[in-house]
Nucleic acid binder design. Structure first.
Lengths: 408, 408
DNA sequence: ACTGGTTTCTTCGCAGTGCGAACGAAGTTT
DNA sequence: AAACTTCGTTCGCACTGCGAAGAAACCAGT
C-alpha cells in the first residue's frame, strides 16, 4: 500500500487488472449479462472479454447461469455475479449499542447481532463486545474466515483520513490511544475499514437505498446527534480533517440554547432526540410520568396527535435552514433523511420542503430530491459492510484468492 | 467523446496514453527532472521512461535542458516542460466587463485585453466583444491559432454540467437560446470550456495561488455578488445541477432585508458590494456627494478610518456565519477569499476568523486555513485558461499535434 | 426438414507495451 | 589511474488486447 502521491502507473498486468475490475463491476451491476453484451458496452474485443470472464469464473466471483434470449442468432450465455461467493462483516458502534451484520456481496444481511454497550466511555468493553458478536455471526452461518472479504466499522466520531483507526479524541476522549482498525485486524486477520457512521449511512443509501445509480448524495442522520455524510462522485467525501458533514453544529438560531460543543443554537440542540423528547414532555407530557420516547412521537404523529405533529413540524422547519444551506453550497442530487424519526415520512418532508423552499435558491432545489430513508435500522452496519464491498469491487485482489482446485 | 457511463477500458495504446500523461504531469509539476528520477518515482522501468520521454520531446512538450548534479555517477540529463509550447486563451465575462488573457502553459499572462460590456442583457454585444478581444490577443503576440490549446470561459452564472455552453435562464434570462461554447467554437475552431466564475477562481487559486499543491479548497468571491467554488480532489465540483457554491444566498440573518432571489437575509444583501457601499454612504458619506466605492472603503480601512474598519468588521462577522457552516459541512483544507475587498487582508481575516471560531466546531477549524487571495484582478480569466490546461494535461491529445518536421 | 443468415463465443497469429539484463557513457572517489 | 556509481540506451521476452477466421447455436423462410 503506497501512501501519498500514488504514482498510478500501468503495465501489462495493471492493464488486465483495470479491465478485469471494469468487467467485474459491470457484471455486479447488471446481475446477469452476456459476454457479447459486455463486449458491445465496453468496446473490448470479444476475445478479450472471454479471457477475462474465464479468469473471473475461475476465481469464483462469477458463473454461467444459463442462456438468454436470442437476438436473431445463437443464444447468449448469461454470466452472473456470485453474490454468495464471499461474506462481509459490518459493525456499527452506536452511542449505546453495538450492531454486527454478516452480509453477502449484495448487501443482504445473512445474520446479525446486537448488544447494548456504552461505547463512549468503555473502549475495552466495546471492543470485546464487537469481537464476540463478530465471532457469533461467523459461527452462526458457519462462515470460514477465509471467505470473508473484510470488516467495516462505523464509528460515532469523525475519522481522520490519515489515521483511519483512531477516533477523535475530542468527541471520544476515552478512546485516546486506541486504534480500532489495528485492534480488530490483529484479532481476525482481516482487512478493516473504519469510517464515520453518517458517512456509511450515506454509502448505504447510495448503494441500496434512495441513491441507487446516482453518484452524488447527502445523507442526514437524525438521532441523538445530527450527522451527515456526502457521497461525491461515488465516493465518501471526508474533507481535509475527516469532519466533513458535521451538520449538527450548524448554528440555525443565534438565540438558541447553548450546546455541548460550546456554541449556541446548534441544530442538534434544537432537533436532536434529546430536544424532541424534551419538547414532547412539554406538549404531550401529562399523559404519563416517564419521559416520552422518539418512538412514541413517531406513533403519535402517525395517529394524528397534534402535539406530536407540532414537534415534527418544528423539526422540519429547523432542519430546513440547514438543508437550504446544504443545497446552496453543495447542490447534491438527493438528500436522504435517516434515523428513527424519519420514519414519519411525509409528515416530516412536507414542512421540511416548505422550509427549504423559503431559504434556498430555486435553481439549487430544482435538481435535488429530498426523501426519507427506506432502509431499516441496520443501515449503518450494512453501510460499513458496503465500504468493504466498494473497495473490493475496485481492487479484485481484496477478495481472498481461493486457489481453486476442483472444488465445485 | 462518450457521454454517460463511460467505459474506461484500456488497451495497449491506452496504457501508453495513461503512462504518458502521468509523466507529462510529473514533468510539468517538477519543472525539471531527470529520466532516472522519474523512473524512481513512478516505478516505471528506465527503458520505458526513456521511450515515453522521447515521445513527448518529439511532440514539442518537453525538452532537454542540460545536466543536473551528479549523485555519485554520471550526471543526469534534466528534462524540462516547455511552458511556451502552446498558448491558452482565458475569458472572463463579468457583470459589466469582459477580460481576455492569453497565457502560456504555466498560467503566465502574455497579453490581456479588457473592455466595458454589459453582459447581463446583451448577449450579442458580449459575444462580439469577446471575439474582438480574443483576436486582438492572438494578433498582439502573433500566435497562430494552431498553437492554441483551447479557450476557457468564465460565466457569471451557474453552468449545468450537461449543457456547458448554456447559461442559466434564471440568472441571465437574456441569454436564453445562446450557447457560448458553440458560438465561440464555430468562430475560432478551438475546444471551448465554460464554467462558473467562482469555480474558476477556485481553480486558479488551486493552481497558482494559496492552494498550490493541495486538492481540496473553497474559494469565495466577494464582489457585487457573493459566489464560491469548491475544488474537490483536484477537480471543480459542480453539484447535481451546476449550482454548487451559491454561498451568496445562504440566509445568515432571518430578520435581514429581502433579496432579489425572493428570500430574506441572504449573505449577498448584507455583504455584497452594494450593501457595503450603502453602509459606507451612511458612515463615511458626508465627505462627498457621490457614492463611495469599494476601492475607497479598502483605502479607508488601510488608512485607519474607523468607519471603513467598522464596515470590514461587519463583513467579517456576517461572512463568518456562512464560512462556519461551510467548514462544518465540507471541511475544506483552505478557504480563499477573493474579490477587491479581500485585499484588506488581515483587517478582514481577523474578524472573520473570530466569527468562525464562535460558530464552527474546533475540529472542523483545526485543519482549515483561511486566507486572502494573492492573485490579481485577472485571476478569474486565468482560471478559465487553467481549466483548459488541466484538461490537456490529463489528455495529451488536446494539445494540437504538430507533426514536427525539423523546425527547431 | 432444410437452407441461408445472424449471433455468440473461441482459437490463433500479430502488434504494441513495459520489463529486465546487458552494455556503453559519464562522473566520482580512492 | 583504477574501481565504483549512476545514467541512459538497446534488445529480446512476456503479457495484453486485437482482428480474422471458424465453429457452434439459433432464427426465419421455403
Amino acid at each position: 500500500m503506497k501512501v501519498g502521491t500514488a504514482a498510478l502507473t500501468v503495465d501489462a498486468a495493471g492493464m488486465r487488472a483495470q479491465n478485469s475490475s471494469l468487467l467485474l463491476n459491470m457484471i455486479w451491476r447488471e446481475r446477469q449479462i452476456s459476454r457479447a453484451e459486455i463486449a458491445r458496452r465496453t468496446e473490448l474485443s470479444p476475445s478479450t472479454v472471454s479471457a477475462i470472464v474465464a479468469d473471473l469464473e475461475h476465481s469464483g466471483l462469477v458463473r454461467s447461469i444459463g442462456a438468454g434470449v436470442s437476438r436473431g442468432g445463437r443464444r447468449p450465455t448469461l454470466i452472473g455475479f456470485r453474490d454468495d461467493a464471499f461474506s462481509i462483516i459490518g459493525v456499527e458502534m452506536g452511542a449505546t449499542h453495538v450492531t454486527v451484520v454478516l452480509t453477502d456481496l449484495r448487501g443482504r444481511v445473512r445474520t446479525h447481532r446486537t448488544a447494548a454497550q456504552q461505547v463512549r466511555n468503555d473502549p475495552e468493553g466495546t471492543l470485546k463486545t464487537v469481537r464476540t458478536l463478530v465471532q457469533e455471526c461467523l459461527d452462526a452461518e458457519r462462515v470460514p474466515r477465509r471467505s470473508v472479504v473484510g470488516l467495516g466499522v462505523a464509528a460515532p466520531s469523525p475519522v481522520h483520513p490519515s489515521a483511519p483507526g483512531k477516533l477523535s479524541p475530542l468527541i471520544l476522549p476515552a478512546w485516546r490511544g486506541y486504534d480500532v482498525r489495528e485492534a480488530l485486524n490483529t484479532t481476525f486477520d482481516l482487512p478493516v475499514f473504519v469510517d464515520n457512521d453518517a458517512n456509511l449511512g450515506a454509502l448505504a443509501e447510495c448503494y441500496w437505498g434512495a441513491g441507487i445509480g446516482g453518484e452524488d448524495l447527502t445523507y442526514i442522520k437524525l438521532a441523538t446527534g445530527i450527522g451527515s455524510g456526502h457521497i461525491i462522485h461515488g465516493d465518501v467525501y471526508r474533507g481535509a480533517g475527516g469532519t466533513a458533514g458535521e451538520i449538527g453544529h450548524i448554528a440555525v438560531d443565534s438565540a438558541g440554547p447553548p450546546c455541548l460543543c460550546g456554541l449556541r443554537g446548534c441544530l442538534v440542540t434544537l432537533i436532536g432526540s434529546g430536544a424532541l423528547v424534551e419538547r414532547a414532555r412539554e406538549l404531550m407530557g401529562t399523559k404519563g410520568r416517564k419521559a416520552p420516547t422518539v418512538r412514541e412521537i413517531v406513533e403519535g404523529a402517525r395517529a394524528g396527535d397534534p402535539a406530536a405533529r407540532q414537534i415534527i413540524d418544528g423539526l422540519g422547519q429547523y432542519l430546513g435552514v440547514a438543508v437550504a444551506g446544504l443545497l446552496n453550497l453543495l447542490n447534491p442530487a438527493i438528500v436522504v433523511l435517516g434515523g428513527e424519526i424519519s420514519s414519519v415520512g411525509d409528515l416530516l418532508l412536507d414542512p421540511l420542503r416548505a422550509s427549504v423552499r423559503k431559504r434556498a435558491l430555486s435553481t439549487s432545489m430544482a435538481e435535488t430530491r429530498i426523501v426519507t430513508s427506506a432502509l431499516g435500522d441496520k443501515s449503518i452496519a450494512v453501510g460499513a459492510a458496503t465500504l468493504v464491498l466498494q473497495a473490493a469491487l475496485r481492487d479484485r485482489t481484496l477478495f481472498p484468492l481461493q486457489h481453486v482446485g476442483k472444488s465445485a
